[in-house]
Simulated assay, not measured.
Amino acid sequence: MALSYKARKRWSLIILLVGLPLYIVVAVTLADWLRRAFDGPPMIVELVVFVVLGFLWMLPFRAVFLGVGQPDPDDDQAER
């Protein structure tokens, strides 16, 4: 089931305003757990963890964000 342009735009806002901050809290909690569990891993390991987690959040939502910045393809007035 494909989402309409307006639905994708709304879902992208919800994901960015609600989901992303929650994901950031989870990522920081995971990094904090790694610090406690492994007695402070090297900074490069923490950097790799944050970079990987920074890319992982967007993979499931790629279809939602695709084309949201473009004009509405169903809007007839945008073509004029």
Score class of each variant (00 low, 15 high):
D74C: 05
G54V: 05
A78Q: 09
V28D: 11
I24A: 14
L3G: 07
V45H: 02
P42E: 05
P42S: 06
V49P: 00
P60G: 08
P41F: 01
D32H: 13
P73Q: 03
A78Y: 02
L56R: 12
L13T: 08
W57L: 08
D72S: 03
R80P: 02
R80C: 09
L13Y: 04
P41G: 10
V48W: 01
R62M: 14
F61N: 09
L53Q: 09
L47A: 13
L53N: 08
D32V: 13
D72L: 02
F61M: 02
G69V: 04
L30M: 15
M43P: 06
L53V: 04
G67R: 07
F50Q: 08
D74P: 06
V49G: 01
A7G: 01
R80V: 11
L47V: 05
R36S: 09
L47M: 10
L17G: 09
Q70F: 05
D76I: 01
Y23H: 06
F50N: 06
Q70N: 15
P42M: 02
A78V: 15
K6G: 08
G19L: 00
L20R: 04
I44L: 14
A37L: 08
R36E: 09
Q70Y: 05
V25N: 07
F55L: 12
Q77H: 03
F50D: 03
V64L: 06
R10N: 09
A27I: 04
R62A: 15
D39L: 06
V48N: 05
L53I: 07
A63P: 03
D32M: 14
D75Y: 00
M43H: 09
A27N: 10
V25S: 11
R62I: 13
P21D: 08
A37E: 14
Q77T: 04
P71M: 11
D72Q: 03
D39P: 00
G69Q: 07
G69R: 11
A7S: 13
P60N: 08
D39G: 06
Y23N: 07
D75I: 00
R80E: 14
L34P: 01
V68M: 06
K6S: 12
S12F: 00
V49Y: 14
L56G: 11
P71H: 11
V25K: 07
P42L: 00
D76H: 02
L22C: 12
E79S: 10
A78N: 10
V25Q: 08
G69D: 14
F61Y: 09
D76T: 05
F65H: 12
A37S: 14
Q77Y: 00
F50V: 11
V26M: 14
R80Q: 12
D75Q: 01
D72A: 03
Y5N: 01
I44M: 13
L66F: 11
M1L: 07
A2R: 10
G19V: 03
L30K: 06
V51T: 13
S12A: 15
W33R: 11
F50I: 05
P60H: 07
Y5W: 01
R80L: 14
L34A: 15
D76N: 04
M1S: 09
D32N: 15
A2N: 13
R36Q: 12
L13G: 12
P60E: 03
W11E: 12
G19T: 02
S12N: 02
P41I: 04
